[in-house]
Design a protein around this nucleic acid. Structure first.
Lengths: 225, 225
DNA sequence: CTGCAAGATTGCAGAACCTGCAAGTATTCC
DNA sequence: GGAATACTTGCAGGTTCTGCAATCTTGCAG
């Protein structure tokens, strides 16, 4: 067995190297080379995992395919899971944030939309995105781990909700508002687990607007019974 | 780093041995010895983890303290996480199940109550329960893993909800009802994550009725805004 | 109570993930 | 061009976990 460590590998973040988004053609020669090497490793990782299955894709094999040392692999990604899970949810854009804060709509639905956007639309490399999706469909364990990266949005989204409350001039005890915000995030994350499960089961590639709308509808139905 | 593999170690279930609930004084000499040995291992594990921290509690150390071989350890518990996470949520009792199915109350609240009961009240050994609680408070990583064991109730609880729907003579498309049930479980689990987080942060030992009631109140507030 | 069969434990070898450290190599900057 | 800096690598070692074969214990039948 020993399938998949769903939790954050907790091995800390990658150690050194150009940390923040080495987005290809930024900076000097060095930075470019590193970005390119990382991309090569990621491609190798998914290619091998799609061939042999997640658990049989050893980091030794990945390193050999990408032509780097194992040590460098761990410098880059911190752990085996690191390559596969990617950088986690993206930061929310300012416009999305503003829209959310000022929306008059139902809190849970808006939240789900926001989460959906931070999770889905942020892989710079389309190939990688597709392969990750494919792997998630093929390996339930991996899917589970992928879904659980969602939990990392909690803190930032609680803050967002607090802003929204402020915009609505809601008053009340600090602690009450905070609790309410936290519960909202917890519920939204729960609902999104459902959405992603669906997405990984279905044949379609992307999460579609319909799926999200249906989920919001289900939430409404459930919370009123 | 390398703190905690939150996901199921996925290493399969323990291999051999008297599998099902070796509840101490059941069966012959052999079964009793095994139950006793397992308990000793569990105690050793938590004692050491509370002394040195979860990640520094090596299974070697645990085995030495409990006086068994490492190999036997893995036969018993399947993985390091196995000892600490325990057997996971208990099976729901028939009376609880019936009560849930026939309750006229709000679905989400009832569900949360049910989950709370399957999670909390099933450790045969009070010491172990207390130590697990203490460790969860001390190690956020462990707490996370513990909370995520909740996910395993999904399947059984979906079935429960379907029964409840049937008892209420709800009709509709099979698939719709199933989706609704799944969403309900997802939301309830989300809400319970909140509850457990709270429980592990606070000073109090047990999850109190108040905490649950407050959580249900929060859910209502959130779902109506 | 003796001895056999089934079941449990153990040691060993080894795979796989991951870390610290020191030495080597490449880039950058002056 | 050469020093300073940053990255890569190899190596040794730690930890979790598995398969296998040998050994020991228990349960049981005669």
């Amino acid at each position: 067995m020993t399938e998949f460590r769903t939790t954050a590998p907790t091995s800390g973040a990658p150690t050194l190297s150009a940390q923040e988004g080495d987005d290809a053609a930024s900076g000097g020669l060095r930075a470019r080379k590193i970005a390119q090497a990382k991309l090569a490793v990621e491609h190798a990782a998914f290619t091998i995992a799609l061939e042999r299955g997640y658990e049989h894709a050893t980091v030794d094999a990945i390193c050999e395919a990408a032509d780097i040392s194992q040590r460098t692999f761990f410098n880059y990604f911190g752990s085996k899971d690191g390559v596969f899970l990617g950088r986690g949810p993206a930061q929310i854009t300012d416009t999305d944030a503003r829209e959310f804060v000022e929306s008059p709509g139902p809190l849970l639905g808006d939240l789900m939309a926001v989460i959906s956007r931070t999770i889905v639309d942020h892989e710079h490399d389309a190939d990688l995105f597709a392969m990750r999706q494919k792997l998630a469909k093929r390996s339930p364990e991996f899917a589970k781990a992928l879904v659980s990266t969602m939990n990392s949005v909690e803190e930032s989204h609680v803050a967002l909700i607090r802003e929204r409350f402020a915009a609505q001039h809601r008053q009340g005890d600090e602690k009450d508002l905070d609790d309410e915000a936290r519960m909202a995030v917890s519920l939204a994350i729960g609902a999104m687990r459902f959405v992603f499960r669906r997405a990984f089961d279905s044949k379609t590639e992307r999460i579609r607007r319909e799926t999200l709308d249906r989920a919001i509808d289900l939430v409404n139905r459930v919370t009123t019974s």
